[in-house]
Amino acid sequence: MNDVPVSIRDTDPLPTVTATIDGADVTVAAGTTILQACGGRDGEIPTLCYGDTITPKNACRLCVVEVEGSRALAPACSRPVEADMVVRTRSERVDHARRMVLEFLGSSVDLSLTANVTAWNAQYGVDLDRYGADAATVARPVKVDNDLYVRDYSKCILCYQCVDACGEQWQHSFVIEIAGRGFDAHVSTEHDVTLPDSACVYCGNCIQVCPTGALVPAVEFDMRAAGTWDEDRQVVTETICGFCGVGCGLELHVQDNTIVKVTSPPDNPITHGNLCIKGRFGFQHAQNRPG
């Protein structure tokens, strides 16, 4: 392949664009999103469906901002900064949209395990009571059909991250997809078959990306149900997986001297947060203690 333009060398600076965000000139590399230009997930713009390792679907619309000249609000997670763009990340209009997204989700989905929601609800003046006791919800029975993880779609906000992690962005297993349409849209295997009847390989990469606790390891689910899950008592130890020669980075979540969960850091250059069934679930042998 010799068709790379000779004018581009490693030493050349990347092209940049300058835009005005909240009144200040901001210069970023071309292709940077508004969200990234505003500090990513650690910045002030709230996000729900935006994950560390998945191309954002911009489905939740919580991160919307005003872009001058644009009729509708724009999703900060996906809209690249353009030259001379004028962006407002807070305004009455933006705050209204964020409040309503939080109300729509809060009144229809169980967000009890979703980080930051309580603070955002206060910040944006969310009032869930005004939807009444009869407001439709996505509540449905918990799916427990295998020993490794549990699917509680009453907590699902349809961020599409598990679908994309299972599919073309990471695992290429394509076991789950969005089925149905509109408010009936839901994550499903074909014909809603159980995971053991599906092509699932139990990598658990869907759990890793789930932002709302709809997908959790069975151990965590059972401990939560028993009231023994306590993240304040957990210590996270980083190590390398010993199962094979790839060298995946592991985070062992240990509570009371027992491994209760295994994750991988999203910024790990080897895993990008992904693991296989052994790395994520194969830890019992490390704690087979004499009875």
Partner: peptide, 24 residues
């Protein structure tokens, strides 16, 4: 409500809430 594809929250839930308010 029937025809929303369900992808984004404002439309997926908003069309349902709109219908509920009209019923009330």
């Amino acid at each position: 409500r029937d025809e929303s594809c369900g992808q984004c929250v404002p439309c997926r839930v908003g069309t349902v809430r709109q219908e509920e308010v009209l019923e009330r």
